[in-house]
Design a protein around this nucleic acid. Sequence first.
RNA 1: GGCGACGUGGCCAAGUGGGAAGGCAAGGGUCUGCAAAACCCUGAUCACGGGUUCAAAUCCCGUCGUCGCCUCCA
Length: 467
Amino acid sequence: MTLKIYNTLTRKKEDFQTLEDEKVRMYVCGPTVYNKAHIGHAMSAMVFDIIRRYLEFRGYSVLHAMNFTDVDDKIIHRANELGVDPFELAEGYIHEFEDDLEALNVLQPTIKPRATQEIHTIIAMIEDLVKAGFAYPLNGDVYFRVRKDADYGRLSGRNLDDMRSGARIEVDNRKEDPLDFALWKSAKPGEPFWDSPWGPGRPGWHIECSAMNLHHLGEQIDIHGGGNDLIFPHHENEIAQTESLTGKPFARYWVHNGMLQLGGEKMSKSIGNLVSIEEFLSHHTSDTFRIMLLNSSYRGPLTYNEETVAQAERGLERLHSALRPALPEAAGAAEPTLTALQTQMEAAEAGFIKAMDDDFNSAGALAQLFELVRSINQARAAGASNGDLQPAQTLLRKLSGVLGLCLEEKTSQSGGGADPFIQLLIELRQELRKEKLYPLSDLVRNRLAELGVILEDSKDGVSWRWQ
RNA sequence: GGCGACGUGGCCAAGUGGGAAGGCAAGGGUCUGCAAAACCCUGAUCACGGGUUCAAAUCCCGUCGUCGCCUCCA
């Protein structure tokens, strides 16, 4: 079995072949930190977290870089609005985003470079591009000369002449071509700056990623990721800069996640239809969000609304249902039941890998987990003991973990301290039921439910769990 | 206007040539004092119109529609 990945560059699924055996270099574009991160950012980070976890599951060691753009126009404007230092502003949002990712159970990237920490590399790269004729200084700015790059437009499937006619950009007549983009921007009064051969200024947006890649991962990488709104111009420009300099293919696989849709539109800072990560997590768990992602293709748009969240929440509960213990007084299941469970375990694991190997088809993989859930619940209903269920439950936990799901047990805030008292109330209620004092037994059940303890009667006894 | 993606049951969605996954919701049933959970059962002429093929949700052409990019964006 080979892993296949959809490559934006070729618009095809391709066999995954790394530059170096069993090692993956992956660079994912992170956010520009001028504001609170929203769940669209969470989606992108989580998609690549899932990809990383799966690659690791498949035996690769993954060098995972995610950058922060911590100096740019928006940050400067926002800092001026608030009357604070732009670097402090950025720093604050970086920490906030890191906390968000931890709360979302997204693995820490191996390296987290920042634009402001790569200024030397950036300047050196720009100098080399100027020397090689791919860039030209202009009144303290430096621009990339797109006409010099014969391949320009390859990633986004455009050509310079088409864009020229359709572009809505305000043309800067000083530039040789309207599509030439800034590598270095001269500083206006009051703006943060670094000294450079072209005067005080700061890096353009695209060059930082090229420089960070070159510095931390090398001239060539395996996977370059980000949201599909970055394909043009950002990633197109990264390719232009890096390949013009190295003469080698930059990234082997360009991987792009789809956009989160809220109210039929892409969630974005400029439209203002935002749900912050913090806001989402104050009402829902990270697993709920992850289920939403897993249930659809990472490349397509993701519909976000109250109903899809609720559906994910119920689906998650179903996964949890399989992890519940055997029925009280279960005597062990008959041979055919256990054989069926064993068969399903093998089918689920194989199906899981087959699905994920096909361009990270997480919806297909999730379906396999649900099949396993059904088998486990069937076995439990057929009287399987905890020992009977345990291997299948372990497999379910393992495969869920590969997708980054926690499936953590819900417990009371105070730990297990309440357990004996809950047991006592259950015993009491059972006595009331024996006496057919149902209004009283229901009162116990209802009051416990209000406290978050769910009682479930069965013919073999009573089980309970935290809601 | 240019480039790209997509349109599958009430909802979210897999599936890209030969049996239409899975989840949620709904209805029926088993269990049960009731409830809940779990389990069983029930459902789709795959946007529309042509074409290729023994065979099309899947390939080709056209139409309609949705979304993204073309300006900062995950």
